[in-house]
Amino acid sequence: MKKSLLVLPALLSFALTACTGTEVTSNPDDKPAASKGQEPPPKAQGARARIGDTITLNSGEDGLKLEVTVVKAVSSAKPKDEFNVPEPGHRFVAVQIRLKNVGSTTYDDSPGNGAHLIDDEDQQYDEALSEIALGASIGTSVKLAPGSSRKGYLVFSVPKKTKLSKFQFTLDSGFGPQVGEWLLR
């Protein structure tokens, strides 16, 4: 009986945390002005983030906030070597991202856990953990002190005829309170 009384508060806490919901945002941050004294041009109402745009995401952890930029997307990336190849009928897609810790707490996570590609039929693809010839992976374990940044590729294996539509990224290994969403075309 005593054990069940101790477990009950933990279960209630978990249930309340899980029910708070997740916000999907596709609103890019305002870009800095080109020169001193100039205001950045205002974003059009309802503008959607695209390749090159930055979205600032909050974590469920107090003080953790990252600026996430989709630097580029490559629709058919060559494998790094003959051992890292997509399965038959598939191709590698690579999304290069830049993470910058603009919060007050260290970021310590695996970025691929919170990354997804979505095609034009609303099907979702997870990271493939493969290496490509284009450049370095962002890594499976990234630690960023406040003010630090990291750039690298996330690789996905998708069917060859798939038309990609969006890239999504979430902090906290995919369990964060916000999901950033970028259009890929």
Rank of each mutant, 00 (worst) to 15 (best):
A33C: 10
P42E: 15
N27V: 15
P28N: 07
T25V: 10
C19I: 00
D30C: 07
A33S: 15
G37C: 10
S26K: 07
S35V: 15
P42C: 10
Q45P: 05
A18F: 08
S26M: 10
A47E: 11
D29W: 00
T17D: 04
E23P: 00
N27T: 15
P28C: 07
C19E: 04
T22M: 12
Q45K: 14
G37Q: 08
L16S: 06
R48A: 13
A34P: 06
L16E: 04
T20W: 01
P41A: 13
Q45R: 11
D30V: 12
T22Y: 02
P40K: 03
G21I: 08
T17K: 02
S26Q: 14
V24Y: 00
T25H: 02
R48Q: 14
P32L: 10
D29S: 10
A34E: 15
P40H: 03
S35R: 14
T22H: 07
T17S: 12
G37K: 06
T17V: 11
Q45V: 11
G46I: 03
R48G: 06
K31E: 14
P42T: 14
A44Y: 01
A33N: 13
P40I: 05
A18P: 01
P42W: 08
G21N: 03
E39L: 15
D29C: 03
P42R: 13
P40F: 09
D30K: 13
N27W: 03
C19S: 11
D29L: 01
A33M: 10
P40D: 07
P32I: 11
E39A: 15
T20I: 04
V24N: 02
T20A: 12
T22D: 00
T25C: 06
A18K: 09
C19Q: 11
D29K: 02
E39F: 13
C19R: 04
P42G: 09
A18R: 09
E23R: 07
A18Y: 08
P28Q: 02
E23Y: 06
E39D: 15
A33H: 10
T25W: 00
A47K: 07
D29I: 03
G46S: 07
S26D: 13
N27F: 09
A18N: 08
G37A: 08
P41S: 14
V24R: 08
T22F: 02
K31Q: 12
R48P: 00
A34V: 15
E39K: 14
D29F: 02
C19A: 13
S35F: 14
L16T: 06
E23T: 13
